[in-house]
Design a protein around this nucleic acid. Sequence first.
DNA 1: CGCCGGATTGTCAAGATTTGACAGAGAGCC
DNA 2: GGCTCTCTGTCAAATCTTGACAATCCGGCG
Lengths: 232, 232
Amino acid sequence: MISSLVLVVEDDEEIASLLEKYLARAGYRTTKASTGLAALAHVQRLQPDLILLDVGLPDMDGFEFLTKVRAQSTIPVIFVSAMDDSTDKLLGLKLGADDYVTKPFNPQEVVARVGAVLKRTRGVAGHEVIRHDGIEVQLDSHIAIASTEKGRVELPLTATEFRLLVCFVRSPFKTFERASLLDACMPESDALDRTVDTHIANLRRKLANFGQEGYIKAIRGIGYRFARSTGV
Amino acid sequence: MISSLVLVVEDDEEIASLLEKYLARAGYRTTKASTGLAALAHVQRLQPDLILLDVGLPDMDGFEFLTKVRAQSTIPVIFVSAMDDSTDKLLGLKLGADDYVTKPFNPQEVVARVGAVLKRTRGVAGHEVIRHDGIEVQLDSHIAIASTEKGRVELPLTATEFRLLVCFVRSPFKTFERASLLDACMPESDALDRTVDTHIANLRRKLANFGQEGYIKAIRGIGYRFARSTGV
DNA sequence: CGCCGGATTGTCAAGATTTGACAGAGAGCC
DNA sequence: GGCTCTCTGTCAAATCTTGACAATCCGGCG
């Protein structure tokens, strides 16, 4: 399995580097942000597996940050606090932090906690996610996301379009006949083959709206295939 | 009343025997396991009344063990840790441990704690609590609480509404199909899919009454999803 | 090679259908 | 009676389907 990505949110460059070093040594991929705003952007774009959060950020209260993150995901968060303030600690845990570390800390201990939290949270969520190129499909939440230069955006798909996209992303490069797609994506319906074309067109348009063009190719006489046609 | 059964999970045979001896002398029945796996089997089979858990197991992290136990019961657990690590303690307590003892310990003190915990939890509700955003659900006591600016308020939910909320808070961001919700929240009933809508509407209204709006989103053609939609 | 014609696919908009929100009523149950 | 659950009906909005027409593809032929 690909190693977990840890987002280090810390304004003290020295501490951040130290943490990154130890985390990298332990086999984690890392990324960092020195402000809450930047961190939120990273969360959006990179979808880290865990966040190491310094409570004392320059631009944003750590708790505010946590609240914002929690509004859109359940990424585990470990608080790092300057003071050994047990009220902070309790508040943090209550808001949904998964662990708590106080400065000064032993980097190895932090790494150990990261490992423990990841182990604990892994497998909890069904969270089946399929990706291809710049497209991500979250099966259990029924959300499709496109990665654009501006970040990750949720695609506003209808149920049918979503099902189509799931088929495609599950088997990129496979050519689907219209009948198969009808079966798989428009159940309980005796629509015509051509109806598929319309849904495909709609899906194409929505993908294009978010910069994901050229994905769905028509295979004359057969049906459709998903996968970006590389150059030529 | 038949005496309580205490499961001692400890890999150090000497310590285990010591504990068993003292517990037996205090009138408890005991059983022991030296690995997490064996312990889980005992929990399944014997349904002990309390677990004395050494955090440092050979095969399984104590927290992992606790999580697994908590997945299927609310048996009170007392942590026994080698180090006096207060974060471990917090983590343990947050996960649902009922008390915490550090080595080296006084066996009599342990027995006393066992007695205290049993007394406290006997007949009384356990305390599995799930939270998301401003909503807290206490499974055992069947109470749902909303955090408003004015403080915490208990939501006056019906049984069905409560079960719905539990489903949602357990898996925020997941989209539930109506059929799943029917299954999970309206057992022993062959109600129509549309009935779910009614309960959802009622739940929404009650949440809104306490300032918790925008939580439940309809996913057209699929079902419902829980999670406040923030502009991000 | 370039053009033609049939077949296939893309696009669009209108109409049909489905869906979700909600209010209200009947039934069962303390 | 009061409460809860279930079902029905209505309305508006979202979605699906269809058919017409334009655009494109592809093989054959001059």
